[in-house]
Design a protein around this nucleic acid. Structure first.
Lengths: 153, 153
DNA sequence: CATCGGACATGATCGGGATCATGTTTCAAC
DNA sequence: GTTGAAACATGATCCCGATCATGTCCGATG
């Protein structure tokens, strides 16, 4: 049981359903922390997996727990970090509970985020829980719409 | 800006999209804490709303922040709480990213949870992001299946 | 440059679930 | 017991998005 710091690449936290299904609990990109939520857990049934060549830092849980108990400032900083993660996860759940690709994309963009460049859109499709094709179509729809608006000017 | 402790009833944390859409960020039942994720945020664009008669405790954010900075044990406990919330939110997002009512219900039940009694199923439908009708049908399907299994014995 | 793989793009088809409609059960309040 | 509201239940319809298929574009590699 360890904590992982993703330095380069991408690592995913996976859960193995007892029926064999695997699902993604967390995707951690560069600078992100993986499995923070497991620091206080005694047992976990999760595993991690890289999706590309990656560099990661590893911190053993017991050491981290000691450090948290000893260093109040660290504990506070850690709580702040978890706070951010809670918000992020809730926001994602909120988006996933919307119906329709358009609504999900809107909601995703409403976080002040920008449409990823070509090459990174499949990741977005996964994040908002739609098929890549559906996302491409929605983007194409918006492209033509904004072109129509331009023409009108 | 305050933290709410739900003693009775249910309170929901809502987000107001700038296009007028409202979505649920968190549903807090008895014993739960509402808006923990906002403790470290300077600004939030969320509001809370009760869905039934409720009793809630209120803690002003500045006071909580002071207490967290002063009391290391509290900070640690708070981190532990946030840890649980992160896991819960991620699990929900994971469920919502599954396709099909059956898969979502399976996944929800796989957490060691039990099908709620009649009267509480609409809440479950909301949580796993399906219409009540779809959930009723899925439950009915399983009922008939288990009846068939019984008859065979 | 040729090749090759992966993402982008778009058409065609199909199914699952949202939605509407209608009826039944349940339970609380009077 | 009666009434009324909300949840449970199930049928019918329809639409959106998953999926399959096909093709183009682009960047990396030899």
């Amino acid at each position: 049981m360890s904590l992982f710091l993703v330095l380069e690449g991408e690592v995913r936290l996976l859960r193995h359903q007892n029926d064999g299904q695997i699902s993604v609990l967390q995707r951690a990109g560069p600078g992100a922390v993986l499995a923070e939520a497991s620091v206080f857990a005694e047992r976990t049934h999760c595993s991690a997996r890289t999706t590309m060549r990656s560099r990661v830092g590893i911190v053993a849980m017991p050491i981290l727990r000691q450090a948290l108990a000893r260093d109040p400032a660290l504990a506070l900083a850690y709580a702040r970090h978890l706070s951010v993660e809670v918000r992020a996860a809730r926001t994602r759940a909120e988006i996933l509970s919307l119906r329709g690709v358009a609504a999900r994309l809107d909601s995703w963009l409403a976080e002040g985020r920008v449409l990823p460049p070509k090459g990174k859109r499949i990741g977005l499709a996964e994040e908002i829980g739609v098929s890549p094709e559906a996302l491409y179509r929605e983007i194409a729809k918006r492209r033509t719409k904004s072109e129509l608006r331009e023409r009108a000017s």
